[in-house]
């Protein structure tokens, strides 16, 4: 590698870094929220595109920057539409699913989502809870994680963090 290649790599990398930093900053905090599996994949893709631009910059500099911006625009549009219109949020976002509620397993939901009982029990144990009687509900979230809600008192009222689930149960 000669000096001119080195200088070119340095200058182009610097400009790419600044460009990408500003594009991301413009697109807002939401771009990198990882609330669903898809968000996570997009974030990793963005990083990979950036890495590829840096390393193959004589071949794919402009294509890479263009793809980077395209991914951001798609993410922007899908979050913009789904935060404003419930129709889009239903189409674009998976919904959380209730798997266990007050002592009852929802077997057909578990089969549909391909979660065996052992995984539900594992999630409960990971919260340090030894008895299923102490659990109010277990929910499969859109990013693939299981939320375990402990029973704080012996009453089942006020479970209003579950209101987004009821419509599709």
């Amino acid at each position: 590698m000669d000096v001119s290649t080195f200088v070119r790599i340095t200058v182009v990398s610097f400009l790419c870094y600044v460009a990408i930093l500003f594009v991301l900053r413009l697109s807002g905090k939401r771009t990198l929220v990882k609330m669903s599996a898809f968000d996570f994949i997009v974030t990793v893709s963005l990083g990979t595109v950036f890495g590829n631009i840096l390393i193959n910059q004589d071949e794919i500099l402009w294509e890479g920057l263009y793809i980077f911006c395209l991914l951001l625009i798609f993410q922007y549009l899908s979050s913009f539409l789904s935060s404003r219109y419930t129709l889009f949020s239903r189409l674009l976002k998976a919904h959380p699913t209730l798997l266990f509620y007050d002592g009852t397993y929802y077997e057909h939901k578990m089969v549909k989502e391909r979660i065996p009982k052992s995984e539900v029990l594992q999630a409960i144990r990971e919260q340090g809870i030894g008895r299923t009687e102490e659990v109010a509900a277990v929910i499969l979230e859109t990013d693939g994680k299981l939320s375990v809600l402990p029973k704080k008192t012996n009453e089942m009222k006020n479970l209003n963090t579950l209101t987004d689930l009821e419509e599709n149960q």
Binding site: A136, A137, L149, K151, T161, D164
Partner: peptide, 22 residues
Amino acid sequence: RKERITKIEIMQAIRKDGYVSL
């Protein structure tokens, strides 16, 4: 709306931290 966050995502974050009630 400005940050493009839905209610579902907020409730999901709350449940993940193990809170039962808003």
